[in-house]
Nucleic acid binder design. Structure first.
Lengths: 197, 197
DNA sequence: AAAAAATTTTAGTATTGATAAACTCAACCG
DNA sequence: CGGTTGAGTTTATCAATACTAAAATTTTTT
């Protein structure tokens, strides 16, 4: 054909997200060197440097390993950066109702591009028992109101307003809302809390 | 190294989503042939056949062109299929509050994997004016209650309960909630309605 | 200023992403 | 029944590249 596919690809390079800088930003935000990522992905620092500078394109499987090493997802690296506001007036929060239990989730971040933590407020009804969790990362929770029975590994804490907890999420954990009122919990997590589609 | 990166890749093949069958299913659901997709993506039918059968791996840019041809996204093709229920009891719906206007969105689908349409019910407060939209696809809306002023291109319709509208979404459209009560609208769209992450 | 760390750059190549075309199979039609 | 057509599979091939190893350069640290 008169127009090579190579040229066709070049013509559509505009459509390829500029993931190089996004990868570099995330890597630096995590305090990692090219060598750190190279070891985690079984790729070389030279190649990763080229990927970050847009000189070379990784295969899909390499891209996924890079995303894994950076504790993020393909989707996060490829998507158009979402709008952010550092300052969130309390009456302008994005809110969601989650699940059959009608938990209310108030999103407070991201406050800037490349943020590594996800702040939110969660309202849970009396008696609600959260999912048992265990995954890589860390979390901080401050109880604004209500009462919680927080299970962390084989420890149990009764939390009242003003109490907080900060832990490694690789330890199994869950909590139950005590008493007759809903709990209001301020969370800052290293992984986004899953909100349905 | 004694373990080739190819083997390393093979070792992690379990981690690579099984997108081949997902691509084929979506292509067939859209009534497209390999030739149709080949023409849309500037790839060959032999290659696409191999991709769908997991024999060959497309580059990231080719993958994105395939996703485009299939009117879907990388994320949709790569993600673990979401749980689905054909039958949705009215008190078991997933709900979300959207935006500052506090629209309520009740998810009714997908009813099966590979579905091409997205059913939902949307509740909107009095006076709410929707975003002006214009994109590829089609939509059907049935007004359950309330009243709407629906703008489609340069046509305006006053919708009352029981009325419906079904149109090509490439025409510019938006609507406003009339009267003092909220509207309750049943929608079936060819594209997912955006819900904040 | 020197050393160390981090990154960039270069040369190289085994592998592959993708093609062209032959082949196979099922469905359809005269 | 044989020929044609549509759809998909398979094979041989190769230009391009995904990625490496190592040298060179830059930046940071001491």
């Amino acid at each position: 054909m008169t127009t090579s596919r190579r040229q066709a690809t070049q013509d559509t390079v505009q459509d390829t997200p500029n993931y190089g800088p996004v990868i570099r930003q995330r890597r630096k935000a995590l305090g990692m060197t090219l060598d750190d990522v190279a070891k985690a992905t079984d790729l070389t620092i030279g190649f990763l440097s080229q990927v970050e500078r847009g000189i070379s394109a990784p295969s899909l499987s390499s891209f996924m390993r890079i995303a894994g090493a950076l504790q993020t997802s393909l989707e996060e690296l490829l998507k158009v950066p979402e709008p952010y506001m550092e300052y969130v007036p309390k009456d302008s929060r994005q809110t969601y109702v989650l699940g059959k239990s009608k938990r209310l989730y108030e999103k407070l971040g991201p406050g800037f591009p490349g943020a590594l933590t996800y702040p939110c407020i969660i309202h849970r009804p009396p008696g609600h028992v959260s999912e048992h969790m265990q995954h890589e990362g860390e979390v901080f929770c401050y109880l604004l109101s209500g009462s919680l029975e927080y299970h962390l590994g084989n420890k149990v804490f009764i939390m009242t307003p003003g109490d907080s907890i900060h832990h490694d999420t690789s330890k199994p954990h869950f909590s139950k809302v005590l008493g007759d009122e809903e709990s209001v919990e301020l969370w800052v997590s290293s992984t986004p809390i899953k909100t349905p589609g």
